[in-house]
Simulated scan of single mutants.
Amino acid sequence: MWKRLISLSLTFGLAAAGPPASAQMVCGLHESITGTLESTYDEALVGRGLQSATRMLEVWRAAEEGNWTILAVHPDGLACVVASGEAWIDVPPRPAGVAASAYRAAESEE
């Protein structure tokens, strides 16, 4: 995961000096970051939602490798990597009308 974050940082020209890598935010043009996610990490957009009136979150993941990235996208085209990692597992959504506690109990029995 850290290799991916550092690679993205270097790709978008961030200096190595400054706060620790865990505190650095990788930002750039949405087209540039998503192009790198597609070409270098084989990730594809799998979901998005509004976080606020001025920010949308996107989830990108690779189907085979399990790596994933979450982007915060601003109206001006700026995108920032909020988080990235490995071993993504899809979890089916809870059906409408089923209580969360009943759904969790059914999952734990499997």
Rank of each mutant, 00 (worst) to 15 (best):
M1Q: 09
W2E: 15
W2L: 09
K3N: 07
R4V: 03
I6S: 11
S7C: 04
S7A: 14
S9F: 04
S9D: 13
L10Q: 10
F12H: 10
F12T: 01
G13I: 00
L14Q: 14
A15P: 08
A15K: 02
A16N: 08
G18K: 02
A21V: 08
S22P: 00
S22D: 15
S22F: 08
A23C: 05
Q24S: 10
Q24L: 11
Q24W: 04
M25H: 08
M25V: 14
V26Y: 03
G28S: 12
L29I: 00
H30D: 13
H30F: 08
E31F: 06
E31Q: 13
E31A: 13
S32A: 10
I33V: 14
T34V: 09
T34C: 15
G35D: 12
G35Y: 09
L37T: 04
S39G: 13
Y41R: 01
E43R: 02
L45E: 15
V46L: 00
V46T: 11
G49K: 00
T54H: 12
R55F: 10
M56I: 13
M56S: 11
L57W: 15
E58G: 03
W60A: 04
A62E: 13
A63I: 03
E65N: 02
E65P: 00
G66E: 11
N67K: 03
N67D: 15
N67E: 14
W68C: 02
W68M: 02
T69N: 03
I70G: 00
I70D: 01
I70P: 00
L71Y: 14
A72W: 06
A72Q: 10
A72L: 09
V73G: 07
H74N: 09
H74L: 10
H74Q: 11
H74S: 10
H74C: 06
D76T: 00
G77T: 01
L78P: 01
L78I: 01
C80D: 12
V81S: 09
V81D: 08
V82T: 06
V82M: 11
A83E: 15
S84K: 03
G85K: 11
G85D: 14
E86I: 06
A87M: 12
W88T: 12
W88N: 05
D90R: 00
V91S: 15
V91P: 05
P92V: 01
R94T: 04
A96Y: 01
A96T: 04
A96G: 10
V98M: 14
A100P: 07
A100H: 05
S101F: 01
S101P: 05
R104D: 15
A106S: 12
A106G: 09
A106M: 08
E107W: 15
E109P: 01
